[in-house]
């Protein structure tokens, strides 16, 4: 079975099937991701959106096998990552990369930029020092930094935006196929955010990347994504092509996320009385549809039956009883 939203033409580069990630928290089981299926086609950018604690970062890390999934399969380019062990997984890692939210924390404060960006090459066994230096220079220039100026410096000498450029350089130096961007611009100012988003788009074209772009802000996701998946409390609510999702959100939760974006226009009065409150604790998710406690359109059935993911027209898929 292929994920909802489906591969568009050929085999998807990444496919996640019935993925569940659980943790033990103080004797209870926290199900951070439960039964999520997704596919990302080659060269595609899939945006993954949800509030904090919805499991979107856990999903990203489970794809990379940084957290081992409890159940389900992750297939990358025909190889089942969930079955790979030790050395085989380590070798696979150079094809999948990760960019973090906090660019400063994700750089070792005691190593020079040149060292940090060369590290992936050393790990993957590029022995020739001149070759490593050439590739580090190339990738640093590609992300808009002057290699000669930055190579000898330490991370604390750079601003957040520049550190994120360095992180992107480190992720790209091995020329991976899939890059998971975990809230790459949430910690940055609006002005710097635009620079980094543009850079990611440039890099995607230049290196032919496939991106899984995780964020809590739909407006940011819109700028870069081909399709968007919306997550709530560990489950998928909606997967739709970007244009359609923004034009006509299918799931009430998607609509809520859209309404919450502050518009830079004083003539549009901000929406008040947004679906009140915050997500319930993932330790004890509500029965039925997990969103029903905040959903303005909740019906009786929503409190009892968990809606399955169902396809709609235009390549959309939604998990909501409104479409029964």
């Amino acid at each position: 079975m292929s994920g909802p939203g489906g591969p568009r033409s050929d085999e998807p580069l990444l496919s996640v099937q019935h993925l569940t990630v659980e943790y033990a928290v103080g004797g209870k089981t926290l199900s951070a991701v439960s039964d999520v299926s997704l596919a990302v086609g080659r060269g595609e950018t899939l945006g993954l959106v949800g509030e904090s604690g919805c499991g979107k970062s856990t999903l990203g890390r489970a794809v990379l096998q940084l957290n081992r999934p409890t159940a389900g399969k992750v297939t990358f380019d025909g190889t089942e990552l969930t079955k790979l062990e030790g050395e085989a997984m380590r070798l696979m890692r150079r094809r999948l990369q990760l960019i973090f939210q906090d660019p400063i924390a994700s750089l070792n404060p005691r190593r020079s930029i040149g060292d940090i960006v060369a590290e992936p090459l050393i790990i993957s066994g590029v022995k020739d020092k001149a070759e490593r230096e050439r590739r580090v220079r190339d990738v640093l220039s590609a992300v808009g930094l002057d290699p000669d100026q930055v190579r000898g410096r330490l991370p604390h000498e750079f601003s957040g935006g520049q550190c994120q450029r360095i992180c992107i350089a480190r992720a790209l130096v091995l020329e991976p196929e899939l890059v998971i961007c975990d809230e790459p611009v949430s910690a940055l100012d609006v002005s710097i955010r635009a620079q980094i988003l543009n850079l990611l788009e440039d890099m995607k074209r230049r290196y032919g990347l496939t991106l899984l772009f995780i964020a809590h802000d739909l407006a940011v996701v819109k700028a870069v994504s081909d399709r968007v998946a919306v997550m709530y409390l560990g489950r998928l609510c909606e997967v739709s092509p970007t244009e359609q999702l923004f034009a006509k959100p299918a799931h009430p939760y998607t609509a809520l996320l859209l309404e919450a974006i502050p518009l830079p226009d004083p003539t549009v009065k901000p929406a008040t009385n947004l679906a009140v409150g915050e997500p319930p604790s993932p330790l004890s998710p509500p029965p039925g549809c997990r969103f029903h406690t905040r959903c303005p359109k909740a019906m009786d059935v929503c409190r009892q039956v968990d809606p399955p993911m169902r396809p709609l027209d235009g390549g959309r898929a939604v998990a909501c009883h409104l479409y029964d």
């Binding site: 609006v190 543009n198 407006a219 819109k222 700028a223 870069v224 081909d226 923004f246």
Partner: peptide, 13 residues
């Protein structure tokens, strides 16, 4: 520099 909701995806900011 703010991403706009009404611009098409992949529009350079």
């Amino acid at each position: 520099a703010i991403p706009k909701l009404d611009s098409a995806p992949h529009t350079a900011l």
